[in-house]
Design a protein around this nucleic acid. Structure first.
Lengths: 351, 351
DNA sequence: AGGATTTGCGAGAACGTTCTCGCATTTCTC
DNA sequence: GAGAAATGCGAGAACGTTCTCGCAAATCCT
């Protein structure tokens, strides 16, 4: 039949059906004034030719691509963004939108580049995990045009974008109080700080609101309980984390419980503990931010501060759809975390 | 300045620079005969207006969208497809392509729908994890037109598409032989079979080549060693897997080592073992398909049959680019697995 | 039955590019 | 310095849709 012939256009369909372009278009899209008879004829012609509407042409004509862009960091171990990505893609599809995904690897130049490309592709909206709280001159109307933007996971208070975040400040406080109630008085916090090299015990500036919130919540709760914490801020890598944790656990007076700012840090703690023969649970309690299937399956199962990732994704799409349809409102949403108590926190007699 | 004005087009740039559309286009794209002077003038006008080329129009004119579609199943616990997704998106970006992602949730109707939409969006190529080995009448030229397709992770021998898979058959054999060398004689295999409900010990038809390969490899190695395996085929869900595993481990004569067909099954085994007080390593050895960061961090660390996921993603894009550029060749690639020995397999004295 | 209304459809423009021509004008060649 | 060649640029078409208009034919109303 057809060897290398181009895909059939609506003109081919119209010709076969013996009508004009306009009529064929009406017949297929089902609008305007048209007789049932012609509709049937056109549809038959369309299926006969295997006609597929050209969405590019449609987008061009309509000025809408029915596509959104997702610019996200992607970390190895933490399923958080992967799951958010899935939730967003699926929710967008529900709303009739496709999703183009870009990864920044937490690099601001990649972020700039990704946004630029997506704007040129004329996505109808953008969901963005900003790489940095401070460096965001590229998020201006000059670069974005009038493309609606929804920020997730991290907030940029100076900018008028809609955003969805989680209540990590409160989540950290709840976790610390729980540990206190279980009798723990020596608490440690392992914090991964992007852009940091090596590790330090001195409180640095944290350029990511999520991590800052967690840290600040921890500090606040600790202060209120009037106990002395052990904190370490380390670079966001496997080696950096392990080195920092090893130093911490090697000391004679080590904390009885360790909080970790994300799953990478949790895994670092687990690896080091395994190496040092420290039993999680009995020897050292652990609470981590972000849940994951494996945290629940381990023995002992890890107690976590869980964040509603699926809901976050869905709500992000909802918000973006709102902004696409009507004027931007820059709404800001905070979803609560949940402390999921499992087995990794032992009860201690407080003396 | 501009309140709700549309994004500037090349005509605006041309007007501001005092040249024609064609000249402006030449100046910006840098082709054809044009003087340096006008190039400068046009570029200045472009930056002044904040001009961003409209890729939709460009795609329409060129007949190429510089976009590929990725249709992938997405499982909760298994990072495999998430990592493959990332590898593909990043590799595609390297080649100047953006990626639209769709999830099928292993549902054939979703797959059909996703492909249809992507074809209508006129993606230049498609990377696909087929939901089923048998049900693929929708993968014909009628539906695909001349869009190149690369299959990953699963092969469809009847179809002329390029494909990349991993040598899971050989991987399974290697793992079984390793277990035998460590002294294990009672081996079990927990296989997740899509579309199955409940569980069975009778060998079913497996509609996914990857899982079939793993199973077949296991069977072959076992047969050659002349030992009796314990196999259970169960539905691909948390509950189904746990029920099946619990029945298996509850028996008086339980295997000394368990192979699991994916990470979901591994987690099921871990959960049930934790519940039953069975110590992984000492009481029960374990080997799973697919590596993950947490498998390495556990105590004991899990021995796995690792698959080169990043390479798989990169090669898939390479292959697709080839097919996009020249005529389809339907090349078929198999990447080898690696047995990563960690601590979850104990040595046993074979009597 | 004759005007008013409705119905069905086609002509043409528009979306923003790029590319092919062809026409001036400049530069080269001897 | 005259013809040849090269250079710079603009006019217009094309990509595949959708939508607005307007026209003819069919139907309605009294």
């Amino acid at each position: 039949m057809n060897k290398k012939s181009k895909a059939p256009t609506i003109i081919d369909v119209a010709n076969l059906a013996g009508v004009s372009r306009a009529t064929a278009s009406r017949a297929l899209a089902g609008y305007g004034r048209i007789s049932q008879e012609t509709i049937d004829r056109v549809q038959q012609a369309a299926t006969k030719l295997g006609y597929r509407p050209n969405e590019v042409a449609r987008a061009m004509r309509a000025g809408k691509t029915k596509t959104i862009g997702l610019v996200v960091i992607s970390d190895f171990t933490n399923a958080f963004f992967d799951r958010a990505t899935k939730a967003i893609i699926d929710a967008a599809k529900q709303s009739g939108y496709q999703t183009v995904v870009s990864h920044t690897d937490e690099n601001i130049e990649n972020e700039r580049q990704a946004i630029r490309t997506l704007i040129e592709k004329r996505v109808d909206g953008l969901i963005l995990v900003p790489s940095s709280d401070v460096d965001h001159e590229h998020l201006n109307s000059e670069n974005l045009g009038s493309t609606p933007v929804v920020l997730i996971d991290r907030k940029l208070p100076d900018l008028p974008f809609a955003s969805i975040t989680t209540g990590d400040y409160e989540g950290a406080i709840e976790a610390v109080n729980f540990a206190f109630d279980q009798g723990h008085r020596d608490m440690g916090f392992v914090v991964a700080v992007p852009q940091l090299v090596g590790s330090t015990t001195k409180r640095p500036n944290i350029p990511i609101s999520t991590v800052e919130d967690r840290t600040h919540g921890f500090e606040t709760a600790i202060k209120k309980l009037n106990i002395n914490p052990t904190m370490v801020f380390c670079e966001d890598s496997q080696e950096g984390a392990e080195a920092a944790v090893e130093k911490m656990l090697g000391k004679s007076t080590r904390p009885t419980i360790l909080f970790t700012s994300n799953n990478d840090m949790l895994l670092a703690v687990l690896r080091v503990a395994g190496k040092l023969g420290v039993q999680i649970g009995s020897d050292l309690s652990v609470i981590s931010f972000d849940d994951s299937p494996w945290a629940a399956a381990m023995s002992p199962a890890i107690t976590v501060i869980s964040r509603p990732v699926d809901e976050l994704g869905r709500r992000a799409v909802d918000l973006l759809m709102q902004e696409i349809r009507s004027a931007p409102r820059g709404e800001s949403l905070v979803l609560s975390t949940t402390l999921i108590v499992r087995e990794s926190v032992s009860k201690r007699d407080s003396l």
